[in-house]
Design a protein around this nucleic acid. Structure first.
Lengths: 228, 228
DNA sequence: CGTGCAGTTGAGCAAATTCAACGCTTGTGG
DNA sequence: CCACAAGCGTTGAATTTGCTCAACTGCACG
């Protein structure tokens, strides 16, 4: 049930590379992204890449929040992931992006050219294994997302909040870097159902909503009970 | 929107390895699976591996149909994939299986020990890249599955039938190697809704159901219209 | 010729969606 | 500094979709 797309912290221990080990620290030492990539800033709702475009870059979020989306012919949108600082996104099956990526809020990302990575991966087995780890981690998250989509609305929202909470410094307050519409498109619900479910959780004292973008988890056990 | 878990046909062209190139032919020449693996037969509903077990093997379906499942605490089951002959399954994020695998019908699979593959992948960059391709292909299918789960019941069933049809020799008749319950758990619907939707499609002359396990696609355009 | 399982069908119900109105911020211009 | 518009979120009522519960059918197998 993960909200973030790719987090190098999770794969680096497996691959025995120290390069990413301290991604979580406030100022991580330079890794492949810092060395080979360039920093780009995007405004709210600005497109980073579009569906069908050539997949030439791999990105790492430095600040903000990036969503990846797929859109059905009739306009229904599914948000596949939210990537938070430290997460990697842009890994795509094949040569073309099957999803688009946009900044949910003003965001900075570091972009590494895919061909650069590919060339180095051919030489450097550790990098090849790192890329494999990214793909595997992304697979895990996508599986969890699919599993989320068979749950009830309450369960989806509870799971979502608990996932976000894992990423927060504070483990009681969650800041939502996305709109209700984005949450709805991620959870496979309508904006009204998301709103109603949040107020329901507030009425049952599971959470509190000081502002629409801040959630206080008052009663974690009751949320966890919904996190099947 | 793929039903099969992993199909080497799709990854081999990208990786430039000839070993798997003719997987689709009636009697494929020996590849890693034939050389390094052993053939095992499973009966209907027999477990191949369970959730939480060590992920030591990679499997390729020789005959039959294998489902991979995840189960929520309260017993709700999601089928993540159906693997048909030629497909690979068992690739798992991490050391433990996050899903179980069972034979939907009596099936033969070829198992390759993961450690064997890993050892060879360290030496053989082509094999490492092949494994990467498997992960990426699996990722694509899982994304498509997640997208399926935001569609209407009719759309899900139509998509499912069209996906299965792609795998059939005949492109008008589809054989279903799984029960209604399995289809329901794959599509995130109930068995009753699947049954009702199939009869609805039959009443609208989109399909015909000579037996419950055989579907004739009478009107592909009308099915495709639902395949958003 | 029963028995049991898989699938279908029906009726009523519950959950989530749709459509619509309302309220709260936020930013802008007078 | 206030008025007002625009965007976002919330709430309500009616509707729809798919689910639950239950009965029934057909088929395979002993």
């Amino acid at each position: 049930m993960l909200v973030h797309a790719l987090d190098l912290r999770e794969v680096s221990p497996q691959i025995g590379s120290a390069a990413f080990a301290s991604t979580a620290s406030p100022s991580p030492p330079p890794g492949p992204f810092e060395i080979m990539g360039s920093l780009i800033a995007y405004g709210r709702n600005e497109e980073i890449y579009g569906e069908g475009e050539a997949a030439d870059f791999l990105y790492r979020v430095k600040s903000g929040c990036v969503r990846t989306c797929r859109v059905l012919k009739d306009g229904r949108r599914q948000i596949a992931s939210f990537s938070l600082p430290g997460d990697v996104f842009g890994l795509t099956p094949g040569e073309e992006h099957t999803s688009s990526a946009e900044a949910s809020v003003p965001s900075e990302v570091i972009a590494v050219k895919g061909s650069t990575l590919r060339i180095r991966a051919g030489v450097d087995p550790a990098l090849a294994i790192l890329l494999m780890g990214l793909a595997i981690a992304e697979l895990q998250r996508t599986q969890d997302h699919a599993l989320l989509l068979i749950k009830s609305a309450q369960e989806r929202v509870a799971t979502f909040l608990l996932d976000l909470a894992k990423r927060e410094a504070s483990n009681i307050e969650v800041r939502l870097p996305m709109s209700r519409q984005e949450i709805a498109d991620y959870l496979g619900l309508t904006i009204e159902t998301v709103s109603r479910t949040l107020t329901l959780l507030e009425n049952t004292a599971a959470i509190s909503l000081p502002t629409s973008r801040r959630v206080i988890l008052c009663n974690r056990p009751s949320l966890s009970k919904m996190n099947v």
